[in-house]
Amino acid sequence: MFQTISRFILSIVVLVTSLHVFANNSVPVSDLANDIAIPSLDIQKPIQPNSVALSASTNNANAQMSDFVELLQLELRQLRGQVEELNYSLERLKQDQKQRYLDLDRRIVSLSNQPATATEAPPTAVTSQVVQFKDTSSEVSDATSLEQGVVAQEVYDPEIEKADYKAAFALIRERQYDASIVALLAFVEDFPQGALVGNAHYWLGEVYMVQGDASLAAQSFEHVITQFPKHRKIPDALYKAGVAYQNIGDVGKANEALQRVLSEFPESSAARLARERVN
């Protein structure tokens, strides 16, 4: 994909350079034309009014050439503008990509380092599909968390919840972000007391971030922080909220969230990322 784009840009650059050379060369060309045109006028003394029209028509070719050069310059400038804009979006894409990679990397690291202890069961199961490894301890914790869920609400099928969550999460993996938002919103509505609702809110935030809607993302992370204060995702939610607030330009709230990660979860990987952000 990048190769195609860069090849495209390269070809434009080549085109632009060659056109540029041509445009520069064409200026002396028109000067040359003048040198030819002037003596031809001098010969025609004394000047008759109709000779004016005659000489003008012989210069039409020159005029066309001049127009042509001007059009070329105009088009060149427009092309240059497009190259600049393409470069800019490419650069931004690269940065986004890197950001996402780091984010994913961080999550993998955090998963492999921390044997899941409490509520984060099904996401672990789902994530395991992504990263191709499975931790037996997470299976155990699955059971515990689901049991807790059952206690909390009687009319509620943990299997359905788990399946729905998995489905929503699969959409995220497939980058069907719009669909995943719909699924996650439906999920939090269907299982308001579910064991995974905090995770769902967190992932809503992640998806909003990917889509560039930092303000909605901040709301989602904020929801996790305030409604699920004991959730395992809190350090991550705080860090992500900080990033989202920075993107909106709310420096105060961004710093508040990032500082909380640093002071309350100094050992977390989120804290490491937060430190980079603060600096």
Binding site: L74, R77, Q78, L79, R80, G81, Q82, E84, E85
Partner: peptide
Amino acid sequence: SDRGGKPQ
């Protein structure tokens, strides 16, 4: 500059 077609 309008080297990119539009003033920027």
